[in-house]
Each structure stands twice: as C-alpha cells, then as structure tokens.
Nucleic acid binder design. Sequence first.
DNA 1: TTTAGGTGAGTAACCACTCACTTACTATAC
DNA 2: GTATAGTAAGTGAGTGGTTACTCACCTAAA
Lengths: 214, 214
Amino acid sequence: MATTRPTHRRKASGRERQAGIIAASASLFAARGFTGTTTREIAKAAGCSEALVFKHFPTKRALYAAILAEKAPFSELLAAVDEAAKKRDDARVFTLIAGYRIRRGADPTLLRLLLFSALEGHELSKMFFKNQHRVFYDYLAGYIGQRIQEGAFRRVDPLLAARSFMGMIAHHRLLHEIFRVPAHRTPEDSVANYVTLFLSGVQTGTAQERHARP
Amino acid sequence: MATTRPTHRRKASGRERQAGIIAASASLFAARGFTGTTTREIAKAAGCSEALVFKHFPTKRALYAAILAEKAPFSELLAAVDEAAKKRDDARVFTLIAGYRIRRGADPTLLRLLLFSALEGHELSKMFFKNQHRVFYDYLAGYIGQRIQEGAFRRVDPLLAARSFMGMIAHHRLLHEIFRVPAHRTPEDSVANYVTLFLSGVQTGTAQERHARP
DNA sequence: TTTAGGTGAGTAACCACTCACTTACTATAC
DNA sequence: GTATAGTAAGTGAGTGGTTACTCACCTAAA
C-alpha cells in the first residue's frame, strides 16, 4: 500500500489532481461566476486537459457543488469566542468575530463564491450560507439574549441586534472586497470602531462604564 | 411632427421598443446576471426578434450598459431627509433613509443588478454604485460630523459610523432578498430597531434622553 | 415612394461533454 | 533483476448544441 515517492514524478495521484482542479476552479468561479467560467479555462488553470477534468467530475455543476460542499465551518474561532463569552468579556467576543472577518490577508474568494452562488440561485447556496454565516447569527443572538437577561444589555431584539453587528462587518467587507472602496483606517481600527459603536448601542449604563470608555 | 394615434397600431415606435427591450432585459440580467442571460431570451421577453434587439443596441454589452446608466439617483428622498436634518431630528433622518430601503414592495431588481455588475466586474459598476449608494454615505457622514461638532453625537469616525448604519440596512436587504431569510418582524419594526440601536450607540447622554427612551 | 419598423435564416465561434487511444507506474511471476 | 500484465493517469480530436451577431429581405404607414 505504501507507495514509493520518485523524485521526478510525471503523473499526479488522483487525490492531488482532484485537489488541484478544485483549487484552480474555485478561484475562477469566485472571479467570474458559474456561467462566466468555461471548462477550458478550468483545465488550463489546473494544468491538464479538459477531458481529465471530466474524468474527475461528471459535470461542471458537480465540480461547482464539490467546491461549495468542501468549505467547512471554522471551529477554532468559535472555541476562542466561547471562552470569551464564558468570561462575559463583551468587547472580546465581538472583537474576535469582527476581527476574523476583517483582517489583512483575508481571502476574498469565499465571499465572492457565496454571493455568486446566492445570486445565480445554486441549490447548494443555502447550505453554504448556513455553514459560512448562519453560525454567527445564532451564536451571537444567543449570547445577546443571555446578556439581556443578566441586565448587561438593553432589551433589544437579540436576532436583529446580532444581524446589525454582522451587517456592519459584512458590509465593510462588501465595500472593500467587492466594490473596491479604499480603506481609510487599519483593519484593527475599523474593528474597534464597529465594536465600540455596537456595544455603546446595546450595553446598559453599568456595563458601559466598565468597557466602552477607556 | 405631432403624429396621429391609430387605435390598432401594429408597429411600436423606436422609443417604445427601446424602453421595452430595456425593461425586459433588466429583469433578466437581474435574475441571471450578464453571462447567464442570452439575447434570445431577451428578445422573447421583449416580444420581438433577436435581430431587432441588435438594431437598437449594437452589442449585448451595450444594452447592459444602457440599463446601468439609466438608473438615476433619487431626489425626493434626499429632499425629505434634508428637511429632517435641518430640524436636527436624528431619529427621522435615519428612519427615512432606512425606511426607503426596507419597505414592503421594494424592488429587488436594483440590488441584484448592483451586486451582479460588481461581481462580474462590469466597467459601469462603479458609477452605478456611486449613484445608488455612495450618496447616502457622503450625506450621512456629513450629517454625523456636524452632530458631533454640536455635541449631540459622541466622537466617532463619521464615515465609519455612516457605513455602520448603511451596513445594517444593506445587510438586512441582502439577507431577505438574496439569501431568502424569512422576516420575523415587520419592515417598520426592523427599521425602528436599527435606528434605535444606532442612535443609542452614537448619541451623547443629553441627546439620548430626548429621543431614544420613550 | 420613401423609410422606419421588423424578421427568418443564416454564420463562425464557442460551449459542455465524449471517446478512442496512449503513457507511466506498479505489483507480481520467474 | 527483469519481463510482463494490469491499471490509473492522461489526452487530441472530435460531438451536437448554443451563442452573439449579421444580412438580405419584407411590411406598414406617412
């Protein structure tokens, strides 16, 4: 079973090729959308023939679906957020989430794929959206609801409040990554601004004195 | 010059046809994107032959550009907002803007066209974005800056604050119109929530007592 | 009679996808 | 060690269908 590794291999293994095709086509689909990308371009980007692409994926649509299905949710972030949530460190909870989205070197591919798939009405769009974004709303809404019960947050609608915060973040990325609006602040600055603004809006007086006014 | 109007006209005037083609193709482009829409579909939707479409617009791309260029900014809204701004009625200023975007029967076509054109990298995308959205940022940022100087708002970054608010609104529409997330509040409720949350976040103590706590 | 409105029948290029076929690697028999 | 058989990796040259776009021609109204 353990295969030898020749130094100058001329044929890639099935796994390698498949991963290569997925990686190459993912950036193409993200850049041009599903209908805007041709199988010939995919083959060229993957460094193989069109025929081989169809040996690995029965149809262009199946390849697209494989890409969307591959992108999994992020566990390490949620663990860090959960820890901050247990300490009731509001600023850290929201800064972690915002900072994960808004940061130097963040990959714009996922956002473009998400938008394209939703606009083009691909069937896997909903699952993709659920894995990529829904997690945050549910988690944040739960945390906000809890903080309201504890008297730390004002009585706002938890789900709408969670969406408000995620809206600021998502819109920030949309402006910069899709509409190419130049940034006039550092990522850290922007995140701090959004977090402060949001927390000032939801925290009660007592909680604000602890965090929002340095 | 004044032409008679026969009751049973069989040929449309050039203007009428052109408008019909634009209207028909606009909804198709919004639904399927540029590459996802065929000229045959456009002709069928406009109720004429493909050849006639090309008599009016030299290329498919020129037709797309004509659609994006046609969509003009909204003057009556800005007038109403301006009036509220002169009275320093913060709640009304933000409620007007949010309510214009979030309301029953709002046309999702423009949002889809805007996103598709930006994602597909169409040249007119930037102008379209400027006409459709940029106005709000600049106007709001100016208003927020003024309110800060007057001591009514905290010292936030005016542009980031404006984007935060527009982000909540834009994201709300994105969730419902593109990602088909069901609404759990009425449009008016949602708008009121977003406005209250935002104003609580930016207003100083004195201003909050006047507006945000009924 | 003029002319703007309108079309059926193309065209070359391109699309997703197929197939007959070659090549490179490996396990095994000797 | 080497010959060989089996198989996974890989492709050039297509396939029928679709695309954006054209052109010669028609038709109704002023």
